[in-house]
């Protein structure tokens, strides 16, 4: 697997930062509150590291929005919220008076949309930099134990970019973990495209 140089990693972090900034603008309008952003952290994980990473908390309940992309490079783009962050977001978006029975429907709808906003902004920002056209599926929402949700996904992938982005709304901290998982060979293509884009 190709390793990313510090320069490439920094460029990637900035491009993702721009995407997250744009998403924050959209979320700001939906929430009606200012969103305090933090600098996102970006880490490259090889297949072994991914598995090791998962083993730390396989039973944790998470909400996962998944977007598949294909083209010059292919893979999955996922956004994960812990159940704590997920319920804070739903509270902020639809109000706390929501009846518990309706919560599941509402949660699925609103979190899919929040995931859609963040994933689109980040993928759009990367796509702009690389000038590559990708095809996307419609995003899907899943909820359950982290290990069960991610295990079948990561087994087929070669490498991942893990981005942790934290933001605070109305003094409530929300953490989203963004995983960009590449199919075999796609990661190398991605890195090559990144290098070309930065030289241009």
């Amino acid at each position: 697997m190709v390793r990313l140089s510090d320069d490439l990693l920094d460029a990637l972090r900035e491009v993702i930062n721009i995407g997250v900034g744009k998403a924050a603008g959209t979320l700001n309008e939906l929430l009606g509150h200012h969103i305090l952003l933090e600098v996102p952290q970006v880490v490259v994980l090889g297949p072994d590291e991914m598995a090791a990473h998962l083993c730390q908390r396989p039973d944790e309940t998470v909400s996962l929005v998944v977007l598949q992309f294909s083209g010059q490079f292919s893979g999955l783009s996922t956004l994960m919220f812990t159940s704590d962050s997920a319920s804070k977001l739903v509270d902020l978006l639809v109000g706390e008076e929501t009846p518990v029975d309706e919560l599941d429907v509402i949660k699925t709808g609103t979190l899919t949309e929040v995931g859609n906003i963040l994933l689109n902004a980040v993928m759009g920002s990367i796509g702009n930099l690389l000038g590559s056209r990708l095809s996307y599926t419609i995003p899907t929402y899943q909820e359950g134990a982290l290990g069960q949700l991610l295990q079948p996904i990561i087994r087929q992938e070669s490498a991942a970019l893990e981005v942790t982005t934290r933001f605070t709304v109305q003094s409530r901290q929300i953490t989203g973990e963004f995983l960009l998982l590449f199919e075999v060979l796609s990661f190398d293509t991605f890195v090559a495209a990144l290098e070309t884009a930065l030289q241009g």
């Binding site: 959209t26 939906l30 609103t110 949309e113 859609n116 994933l119 993928m123 056209r133 419609i138």
Partner: peptide, 23 residues
Amino acid sequence: PRYLSRIRPVFAGGPPVLFSPQL
């Protein structure tokens, strides 16, 4: 603007955009 800013990228081949019935 709040809707257009999300729909515009679709014309550039961006990912699908969802508007949930809740929001």
